[in-house]
Write a protein that binds this DNA or RNA. Structure first.
Lengths: 170, 170
DNA sequence: CTAGATGCAAACACTTTGCACCCTG
DNA sequence: CAGGGTGCAAAGTGTTTGCATCTAG
């Protein structure tokens, strides 16, 4: 776990504690997993990752912890109808996602360059994209608000396609 | 059902027939419902809508028909983790959606002005937004493709917030 | 100590599937 | 009249919930 993730974990723990929540070993393990992974894991993956250290942990606990974090706005849930939900515990604010339709990888453009999760995005790309999208969505939301009365409070922007790796494989 | 919907229904029927599919009354009723509604109905709503005319229709048939249409790219499925899926049978290509978090209405900016489904969008807004988004997404996809090797083939852009109606109600 | 967290299993909602019967083309 | 479509019910998913037990603070 890098420095940034560590910092985020500390903040997360502090905020939960401040709200009167307890920090059981299982819960901390889930938090640690969430802040250190860039691959947007699903509940099953989180559960599997924690089992070696805490063999008795149940799936229900993972669900409950995720639910708690959602309530506090500490994770971004990416729900896909059939495929279940995936979670981003590093960047809870809305941002674009790159979803490879072949291998299922979900990449966070803004983070992919920092510690490559296997997606091949450079941080130049990451930063440019993050800024572009934020600006465009903001403009879009402003236009809607002014002209149609729709008050945008959040959004979701998913791009589906083939990641560099799968593309290379033919 | 207006002229545009009627035209789309004809085309839909022709394409299904051309692919060797049969057109049972239930199936036609589902198609008719899909092309004439602007409110992005869920499967249950479609089922409820055709029950008066075809009381024996089962939910499974609606699911199967929707699945068939998805395979042919004739409906756009908007899956929401918990809330199930909603369907757009008028515009199967990716386009933005405005989702009211209070009343659950899902509006299609590009269509809302034409026959107001209760969302208060003018067609000026609709056309502007549709064009803006198409251009922005295209630029975004091109940037990704060139710089990161991610080949975008489709996308999804959802805006969450309050529609004019709910906003007015306080 | 005691409220909050856990783990298990049962319950849930949405969707898919198997199969005998039906009806379009 | 043949093969796709239908309806029913059972089976699957992913997720939530109830409750007795346990434990962090």
């Amino acid at each position: 776990m890098n420095a940034e993730a560590s910092r985020r974990l500390d903040g997360l723990i502090a905020r939960l504690r401040a709200r009167g929540h307890r920090l059981t070993p299982q819960r901390v393990a889930i938090l640690r997993e969430l802040v250190s992974r860039t691959d947007h894991p699903c509940v099953e993956q989180l559960h599997a990752a924690i089992l070696p250290s805490y063999p008795a942990t149940s799936l229900a606990t993972v669900y409950k912890t995720i639910h708690l974090l959602k309530e506090h706005g500490e994770v971004l849930e990416l729900g896909f109808g059939e495929l279940g939900s995936r979670y981003d515990g590093r960047h809870p604010e809305p941002h674009p996602h790159l979803i490879c339709t072949r291998c299922g990888t979900i990449a966070d453009p803004a983070a992919a360059g920092q510690e490559d999760a296997g997606t091949g995005f450079s941080d130049e790309v990451a930063d440019t994209m993050a800024a572009e999208v934020a600006a465009e969505v903001a403009a879009f939301a402003a236009a809607l608000s002014k002209r149609a009365g729709f008050a945008v409070s959040s959004h979701r922007f998913d791009l589906f396609g083939l990641c560099a790796r799968c593309r290379a494989k033919g």
